[in-house]
């Protein structure tokens, strides 16, 4: 159970004046159950990359395997792929269209050919998973607040019970609280369901404390790929492409340069605080 990309290239509007080579020789493998962050500057090809995962975009060259099967082979069942790899687009609330939230969330399962009853069970389950309050189920999706709309839209994809959930910048345009709420909810979702979760973002700070692996995209190529602390250790290269490691990385490196012997691979504020106080304790003891 995994997704494997081999030498994927993608070119938009090939042969026209607006030709754009958006993905260049991208290879990677994502095992089932992993919580992955894809990060990169605007225009680095993140959205293009993830649209390949459920076959919405077909690579100009290269191969993509889902569970070991080449999805570009003849007669591959794209519809089933799309219900197994759920893709939540950027600003997903722009896709809401039904008269009420509950019916809208039922749209996905209905397209899967499930019975009305089953659709409702799944819709309810999905709305609960994203923490959408029950009292708003029968409200028009257009009357909700930004954060609630987004939850409803994410539930619309979750209701299909995908094995892989891909979210394109799920926090774009939300306030800091709404952002943290959504991210916490997604992390919780990953813990509860064992789904593969792929989280796209352009902010390191956002995803650093959640994901177990970070893939850094730059100008259509895969620049770095590894555990967060490993990726952040390349903070100078990240800066050069307009990204930044979390602030704690800078603090730890700064301390080290000034002669305080701390480990520099902390990724969250909590870890850093612990490391610093531990080191200070140690130094005091030796005075």
């Amino acid at each position: 159970m995994s997704i494997r990309l081999e030498h994927i290239n993608y070119i938009y509007s090939q042969g026209s004046a607006y030709e754009k080579h958006a993905l260049k020789d991208v290879s990677l493998e994502i095992p089932q159950g992993q919580f992955v962050g894809i990060i990169g500057h605007t225009g680095s090809g993140k959205s293009t990359l993830i649209q390949h995962l459920n076959g919405l975009l077909i690579a100009s060259s290269g191969a993509l395997y889902y569970n070991g099967q080449n999805i570009y082979q003849d007669k591959y069942d794209m519809k089933s792929l799309r219900s197994q790899v759920g893709l939540v687009f950027q600003y997903p609330e722009h896709q809401l269209f039904e008269v009420d939230v509950f019916t809208d969330v039922c749209f996905g399962p209905k397209n899967q050919g499930l019975s009305k009853q089953e659709c409702e069970i799944r819709a309810k389950e999905a709305l609960e998973l994203v923490g959408f309050p029950e009292k708003h189920y029968s409200q028009s999706p257009f009357e909700l607040s930004g954060g609630q709309k987004r939850r409803a839209a994410i539930a619309g994809v979750l209701a299909m019970r995908p094995k892989v959930l891909v979210l394109d910048e799920p926090t774009a345009g939300l306030d800091p609280k709404g952002r943290d709420d959504i991210l916490d909810q997604i992390a919780q979702l990953h813990g509860q369901t064992g789904m593969t979760v792929i989280l796209v973002s352009h902010s390191m700070e956002d995803i650093a404390r959640y994901v177990e692996r970070i893939i850094v995209m730059n100008k259509g190529t895969k620049m770095l790929d590894g555990a967060p602390r490993e990726v952040f250790s390349h903070y100078r290269e990240l800066e050069q492409v307009g990204l930044a490691a979390p602030q704690v990385t800078y603090i730890m490196h700064g301390l080290k340069e000034r002669g305080i012997d701390v480990r520099t691979d902390a990724t969250t504020v909590e870890e850093a605080a612990e490391e610093i106080s531990g080191t200070l304790h140690f130094l005091r003891g030796h005075r």
């Binding site: 919405l56 799309r82 996905g108 397209n111 899967q112 619309g156 994809v157």
Partner: peptide, 16 residues
Amino acid sequence: EETDKIMKAQIARGAD
């Protein structure tokens, strides 16, 4: 562009 995005989003939700 908007139409393109919405179409893709609905196809991703299984719309035929």
